[in-house]
Design a protein around this nucleic acid. Structure first.
Lengths: 153, 153
DNA sequence: TATTGTTATACTCTATAACTATA
DNA sequence: TATAGTTATAGAGTATAACAATA
């Protein structure tokens, strides 16, 4: 799906930057999410597992902030991870309003297995590319984000 | 939501390019889609209207290819556009399997009204930016897409 | 009173596969 | 047999609001 596709940019003579960004994202999104789904995880589930893999546990609030998933959606996603035995909720001792989510052993193992394959899959695209060139591309994405963030205020 | 968020890239030491890409997209997606929804259109609906605005009519197949929306999803989206009086389906004379979708007068007027505002909204982000800098950023995005597309085969 | 998270509502979109009609 | 589009299903996302428990 697209927020803005190439047609739009042509029609409206929008900055070509937006068209290129959109197309780049679509290409990546397809490349990444199809692979993930074949491993049995949705992109959202993988994003949550990724955030949890780096730490012991996270509150739903933090998880929501880090993944960009709204708290309402997060409830359902964590529900399904729990149902599948990959994550669990524990009420925080410090603040008993807060529910800490952490990975089960199975969740951690699943993440590591999937992530390794996924990493290799993504790496394919960048093999043999000049490091300096990647740095330039990164800088472009960073600058684009800054422009958008600045306009968002 | 994110397919891959910054946390993942840190965890896996994925090419930083992907992390920057993801964050840039999220920033843009929020900036663009919130504005669209406030105008009463979903991003998918706007994408379809955009594709149709440039031409007389498109078959569902072509529409699907141009927007990147799968044909299954497209059925529902066109249904809702029809319900809202923005688009209509006509069975093709040449190939009666094919349904041509076109904008109603109201659909065209709605698109033009929304698109103009949306264009202005997006333009805000790029005002005063050096044209040459934008060209460089675009080239980077294009290169990124080529790398992904090449790996997709 | 403010915040955390859940629940509920209603709609939209995605992917996928099975199906119908037509070619 | 292949293609165009629809239908069905399950999962996920949005926005919003109301709510309980806790701070």
């Amino acid at each position: 799906m697209s927020t803005l596709d190439a047609t739009l940019c042509t029609t409206l003579r929008l900055p070509a930057t937006i068209g290129e960004m959109t197309q780049a994202w679509h290409a990546f999104e397809q490349f990444a999410s199809r692979h993930l789904r074949r491993q049995g995880l949705t992109p959202a589930q993988f994003a949550v597992l990724s955030a949890l893999a780096a730490v012991t546990a996270l509150s739903c609030k933090t998880l929501s902030e880090q993944t960009g998933i709204t708290k309402g959606s997060l409830t359902g996603i964590v529900d399904r991870l729990e149902q599948n035995g990959l994550a669990q909720r524990v009420v925080s001792r410090e603040d008993r309003r807060s529910h800490l989510v952490n990975l089960t052993d199975e969740g951690r193992a699943t993440f590591e297995r999937v992530a390794e394959k996924h990493f290799a899959h993504l790496q394919q695209a960048f093999e043999g590319v000049d490091r300096e060139e990647l740095t330039d591309i990164e800088a472009g994405f960073r600058r684009f984000r800054q422009l958008i963030n600045h306009a968002s205020r």
